[in-house]
Amino acid sequence: EPNAGHRALAEMEASGVVSGVITQNVDGLHLRAGSSHVIEVHGTMRRVLCLRCGQVFDRRDIAVQIEELNPWITVPENIALAPDGDVLPETTDGFVIPVCTVCEGMLKPDVVFFGEYVPLDRFRAAESLLRSSTALIVAGSSLVVNSGVRLVERARRRGIPLIIVNHEPTRADVWAHATIAAGTSDVLPALQELLR
């Protein structure tokens, strides 16, 4: 569920203080919190796409197909989830994977996996939002992934203020005008109050 940090960003966007959100997260929480100008650099788990023809599907529709194609699968109520929310099945024997209903191609969540490149159009959209901004707040990212670091580097080159809010040190702390070693659910609502 969206937390206080997500909601504070959405409210600051609605009031005109924040011009948009660039996120590496694929969970859709910024949109659910009410942000409207969200660039999901690494994609979203809400969509599935065909690797052959590019057709896009709603993930819920694919989940229904998986259940229909594999009626023998049962998910216990108290199943242990991995840190990323995945479940390790006891077996994959007999599991039927849905294919694209347009071309029968292979389907994949519309997310950038480690080792893949961020689609150029998404990165350009993020750069465009950054170019129109007067500051950059990095909130809740260690900046381990290069796509985030590249955006911070562009902000640094422009000389706009860079504020980093993260519990742990990041790769870009040396460039930051300010670093705040705290959680976004505490800092972003406090920032919202200061800017009212």
Rank of each mutant, 00 (worst) to 15 (best):
W175Y: 13
A190G: 07
V99I: 15
M45E: 07
D27I: 06
R46W: 04
A126T: 07
G43V: 12
T184Y: 03
V111G: 05
L194G: 11
A125E: 15
L29F: 06
V17Q: 10
V41P: 07
G5D: 03
A190M: 11
L195S: 06
I66N: 01
N146V: 12
V174S: 15
E67W: 14
T134F: 10
I160E: 00
F123M: 13
S15Q: 12
T74M: 10
F113N: 07
L162V: 09
L9I: 15
T92G: 10
F95I: 14
L88S: 12
A182M: 04
Q24L: 11
E1T: 15
C103Y: 11
L188W: 02
A126K: 07
S141D: 00
P119Q: 04
L143M: 01
V165H: 01
V48K: 05
R47N: 11
M12H: 03
P71S: 02
I160Y: 01
D110L: 15
I97W: 13
G140I: 07
E116I: 11
S128A: 13
L194Y: 08
L195N: 02
P161H: 01
S36G: 03
A10R: 01
A178P: 08
L188D: 01
A8P: 12
A172G: 06
P76I: 10
G159M: 08
W175I: 05
V174D: 10
D27G: 04
M45Y: 11
N146L: 13
A80M: 09
I39Q: 01
Q55A: 14
E153M: 08
R46T: 07
M106E: 14
L120Y: 08
H167R: 15
R7E: 07
L51S: 06
L49H: 15
T91I: 13
L151K: 00
E104D: 09
R124S: 07
A190S: 09
A190N: 00
I137R: 02
E68Y: 04
L162P: 04
G94N: 07
E168M: 09
I79W: 08
I73G: 03
I163L: 05
L31E: 10
A63V: 15
I66R: 03
S132Q: 14
H30L: 02
A139E: 02
A155T: 00
L151F: 02
I39K: 02
E127Y: 06
E67G: 08
G159C: 07
T23L: 02
P71Y: 01
V26P: 10
H177A: 06
I62Y: 02
Q65F: 04
R154F: 06
Q55W: 13
V17M: 09
C103I: 07
V149W: 09
V174W: 14
I163K: 00
M106S: 08
W72M: 08
R47W: 13
C100Y: 10
W72K: 09
R60C: 08
G159F: 07
P119H: 04
S35D: 00
A172P: 09
